[in-house]
Structure formats: C-alpha cells, structure tokens
Simulated assay, not measured.
Amino acid sequence: MIEALVLPVTISIIACCLIMAAVWFWAYKIKNGGVVDIFWSLNFPVIVLIILFTSEGWRERTWVICAMVVVWGVRLGVHLGKRVIGHIDEEEGRYAQLREDWAPNANRNLFWFFQAQGFSNVLLSLPFFIISANENKGFSAFEYTGFVLWLIALSCEALADNQLNRFKMDPSNEGKVCNVGLWKHSRHPNYFFEWLIWMSFAIFALGSPYGYLAIISPAIILDLLLNVTGIPTTEKQAVRSKGELYKEYQRTTSAFIPWFKKK
C-alpha cells in the first residue's frame, strides 16, 4: 500500500507547494494574505484529481471520493473567494494581525506560512490516499455511512454560509452580530459542519485497509478549529470589531456544537 501512495503523495506535495508559492506572490502584490484561504480549499480538488490519475484502487470507489472532495472543495473555495475578493483592498483582520505581529519580516513569514498550508493540504488528504488505494470491489457500510454524513454536513454548512451572507447583505444589520438560523444555536455552525465533513471522510475510509489512520485528519481539523486558527482568532477579531454585542452573544450561545446551550 505504501508503495502505491508514493507517486500521488509526491506529486501532490510538489503541486501544492507551487500553487502556494504563486498565491503568496499574488498576496504580496495586493497586500492581502486572506487569499490563502481560497486556495487552501481548492488544493483538495487538485489533490484528488492527481489521485484519480495515479491511484491503483477500485475505480468506482476512487471516482466517488474524488467527486465528494471536488464538490465540497470547490463550493468552499468559491464561498471564501466571494468573501475575500469582495474586499480585496482590505485585508482580513486575522491576517492584518499576523502581518503586524511578524513585522518587519511579515512577507517572509507569510511565505513559509503559505507553504505550511500546502503541506497541511497533503497531510489532511490522508483519507483520500487510503481510500483510493483500496482495490476491493464493492462499497461497504462504512462508505455508505460516510457518504450520507457528508451529504448532511455539506448541506448544513452551505445553509449556515448562506444565512450569514444574507444577514451581512442587509444594510440594517450593519454592526450587528448574526444570530439567526443556525447562528442562533452556535457561534460557529460553519466550523462545526466543516468538521463533520472531515469526519465523514474518515468514516468512509474505514471501509479500506488501514482506514483507521484517517481519523488523524478530523482530529487535526478539530484542534485547529478549537485551539489555533479557527474559533480563537475569529472570536478575538469579533470582539475587537463588535465589542459588548459579541460578548453578550458569547454568553448565550454554544461556541461550536449547535443546540448545545450554555447553562
């Protein structure tokens, strides 16, 4: 199995690093590091296309997981693209803060940050590599379960993003905190359902040899969302921009899991 993964993994690393180098150059020219989020999402469809042409597993299974990743990755990339490009001349608060923290070597550090994002794309793609190497014919219960969970999580993530977009587009909501729809039950429903999508990939991989290793991906995503670049940085920026309004929102809602209310 390891031998079967050498080629797709190697090509994926090279492709993602080259893409992120080009994205860094673009970010350098426009002084907006937020564009990395768009291509972090779009790198996953690139990886599964590489897998599609280099994998040795059962083709039907490979086509299914590749289609799942392309649909999810392109939707997320387009969504983030609209958000970032909509204010391309104004760098998102998280990256503006990084630029300030890393001064006077911000551009150099951002380059390596972008490269780290490219490597993370390949590491997190472990479920896709495992699934595509499975030569057994036929779909297992794990694969059916993973697909159903993926469909539910993707639909809910898209719903949360749409609800937030509609809230922001209403001029009367300027300066307010979005607390409608799924956002009434969680401060970050988009993050929660994004994590569920990664769980669906891991469950799908359980139908393949060594599939238990795929749990590494949702575990990393969960740690990033809860402790690193997800909720902590997003909430710090929200408090800076919304002040007491957001602090009140924090006191009355769950940070992550919808409907898991604070007492």
Rank of each mutant, 00 (worst) to 15 (best):
A116T: 05
Q117P: 09
Q117H: 02
G118S: 06
F119E: 01
F119V: 14
F119R: 09
F119H: 01
S120N: 13
S120M: 13
N121T: 13
V122C: 06
L123W: 03
S125A: 10
S125Q: 07
L126N: 03
P127S: 02
F129R: 04
I130A: 01
A133N: 01
N134A: 15
N134P: 15
E135I: 07
E135K: 13
N136P: 05
N136K: 15
F139P: 01
F139H: 00
S140W: 04
S140K: 04
A141C: 12
F142A: 14
F142M: 08
E143K: 04
E143L: 05
Y144L: 11
Y144N: 05
T145F: 05
F147E: 06
V148T: 06
L149A: 03
L149N: 05
W150Q: 05
W150N: 00
L151P: 14
L151S: 09
L151V: 12
I152F: 11
S155L: 08
C156S: 12
A158W: 15
A160Q: 04
D161E: 11
N162R: 12
N162V: 14
Q163L: 09
Q163N: 09
L164A: 03
L164Y: 02
N165S: 14
R166V: 15
R166A: 10
F167K: 04
F167N: 02
F167Q: 07
P171V: 03
S172W: 00
S172D: 08
G175C: 05
G175D: 14
C178L: 04
C178P: 04
C178M: 02
N179I: 15
N179H: 14
V180K: 07
V180I: 05
L182K: 02
L182E: 01
W183N: 04
W183Y: 04
W183H: 04
K184S: 14
K184M: 11
S186T: 01
H188Q: 15
H188F: 15
Y191D: 13
Y191R: 12
Y191F: 15
Y191A: 12
F192A: 13
W195G: 09
W195F: 12
W195M: 09
L196W: 08
L196D: 03
L196E: 08
M199G: 07
M199E: 01
M199S: 01
F201M: 11
A202T: 03
F204C: 13
F204Q: 08
L206T: 11
L206M: 10
L206C: 07
L206D: 02
G207I: 00
P209V: 04
Y210H: 05
G211W: 00
Y212D: 10
L213T: 07
I216S: 14
I216H: 07
P218K: 02
P218I: 05
A219C: 09
D223V: 15
D223T: 08
L226T: 10
N227R: 09
V228G: 06
V228T: 12
T229V: 11
T229M: 10
G230F: 09
G230L: 13
I231C: 09
I231M: 06
